[in-house]
Every structure is written in structure tokens, then in C-alpha cells.
Write a protein that binds this DNA or RNA. Structure first.
Lengths: 144, 144
DNA sequence: CATATCAGACTACACCTGTCAACCGTTTTT
DNA sequence: AAAAACGGTTGACAGGTGTAGTCTGATATG
């Protein structure tokens, strides 16, 4: 994990570039992820209020809590803020990228880097429903 | 994640029971996992010294560090200690169980609970090698 | 037996995370 | 214009994590 204590502007820019190039050097925490999901879901940038509104149902967070999460995501280079009247936030890393990064990380951590091992484990831990399996079978039949 | 603010003894016992029944309510951290892996690899219980020896190559941790990790794992109910001359430790949760629990958790977190979505993502992020794919195809052909 | 060694307990400390309150300036409402 | 509401910044605090030092009692060794 990379620690960026006192980020100067320069370092900040580097982080952004970095985030774009190899998608994120730091983990996104559970709560932060909730915020990311909201941003990913929206096609335009959102303000804190927007985010809060979107989360109303699932999480009853105070506005400050969301603000904190958002700030942390900015420091991590996961999202970008853009000043209009108010700050608007949008992701710097796509859900797709993040998911596959995180999945890869898990595979590294637990399955010795072998995706196949993971899938095999899923199959024989009976975590897959019958319909999962048939869809997967379909998928692998078509894929070449 | 379950937070137990002021844990009373009772709650603590519940946690332990819980850990045994449905294998672990708390996450195992990265460093802790290294220790778990060593224990999983061995068929007999190990002392801290044994663990340290096994980790010699990969991690140059001080003995106290390992002891700390081991203690934390004991509190979490992930391993058990057994007094001989010295304490010997062995897993309470199997690697298999842990892996599939953690994988499930990731699927919940990122793929809306659908294992199929995760696998699909892996496939189209090109994280799978050609040989992974053929092995998987094999696997799904045989599975019924 | 005396000393050197070591295992285990306790403590520590910085950083991360979850959650929020207080304060402060700007914008909107009365 | 005064008051209310809102957005942003700072600070906070408890619990988790990475990593390790110190102390104390047991064990091994001369």
C-alpha cells in the first residue's frame, strides 16, 4: 500500500495519472465502496447532496460522514472533484476496472494467482446455483 | 462486519460459539492470513517458532510480531492454542471454508451476489489465460 | 547453581476505517 | 438585511492492522 502523507499538488497530479494508468494503488474500504457505487451508477457528476439522497435508503449517514468518505476517495485518487457552484464528483476508475482489480487481488491472496482454482472452489463449495452452472456452461461453450 | 463495541463476557462467548458454528464472523487481515496459511499447510499444530521458521523466507518478522498475529487469530476464533511445553496452534477454520467464505463475500460486495457475474467479468477482463479457459471449459463440460 | 535464552504478556504507536460534531463561509429564504 | 440552510474543512474518537519493544518467568546450558 502506498502512503501519501503530505501530498503536494504535484504528487496529487501524479496520483491521478497513476490512477488512470494502472487503476488504483490503494484499497477502497467498505463504506467508501458504497459511495463509489452511487457514482458509478450515475452518468453525470454528483454533489454530496445527490450522493446522500441516493444512499438514503440503504445507509442513514449524516452528511459529514459522506463528505469524509468522499474526501478520502479524492485523496486516494479514486474520484475527481470539479468545482461548479458546489463540488461535483465523478469516478476516476471504472467499476469494471475496480472489480477486476479487486477480484484479481483476491485470487492472488487466496488462490495462488489461479483464477481457475477459485472457480473450482466455488463449484465444489456448492456456492453456485444450478442455473449459475448452466449459464456458465453456456458461457464457456460459446467462448473460444 | 459486526462491531462489538463494549463486549461483555457474554457477547464474547457468543462470538466464540458463533465462530465455531458458522466459521468466522470477522475478517482475517493480510498479515494474519500469512500465519493461517502456514498453519493450514502443516498437518500438526505449530509453535510460534515453527511458524516463524516457515515464514523466514517470505516475511522477516520479529518473533513478537508473529506472536501478536497469533494472539489476534486466537481472539478471532480462527485458531486454537494448546498447551504442551509451549503453546501450539492449529486452525479452527479450514482453508477451504475460509476461501469460500471470503470469495462469497467478494461476490456479495462487488457482483451483487452473482458468482456468474464475477466469472463473466474475469473472462472479459482477459484475466484468464488460454489454458485457464480450456481447463474451465473441461470442468464445466464434466460437471453436471 | 548461575547465567543466557526464549516464550508469552503487556504495551506501544502510526495509519486505516466508520462515524460524526463543530465551526465557518456562502447561498437562499424570509 | 437578518436568519436559515447548506457545502466544505477540521478535528475527533474508537476499533482494526502492521509491526515491534520490554518485562517476566521458564528453560537450557556451562
Amino acid at each position: 500500500m502506498v502512503y501519501l502523507a503530505k501530498t503536494t499538488r504535484v504528487i496529487h497530479i501524479c496520483m491521478e495519472v497513476n490512477a488512470m494508468i494502472n487503476s488504483l494503488a490503494e484499497r477502497i474500504s467498505d463504506s467508501e465502496l458504497e459511495v463509489m457505487k452511487v457514482l458509478w451508477q450515475s452518468d453525470s457528476a454528483l454533489s454530496v447532496t445527490d450522493i446522500r439522497e441516493a444512499l438514503q435508503k440503504s445507509r442513514s449517514w449524516e452528511a459529514t460522514t459522506i463528505k469524509t468518505l468522499v474526501s478520502r476517495l479524492v485523496s486516494k485518487g479514486a474520484i475527481r472533484q470539479e468545482k461548479r457552484n458546489v463540488f461535483y464528483y465523478s469516478p476516476l476508475i471504472s467499476e469494471r476496472e475496480y472489480n477486476s482489480w479487486a477480484t484479481r487481488e483476491l485470487i492472488e491472496r487466496l488462490y495462488n494467482g489461479s483464477a481457475k482454482n477459485m472457480i473450482a472452489a466455488l463449484v465444489d463449495s456448492e456456492s453456485l446455483t444450478q442455473s449459475d452452472i448452466s449459464e456458465l456452461r453456456e458461457m464457456f461453450r460459446v467462448e473460444e
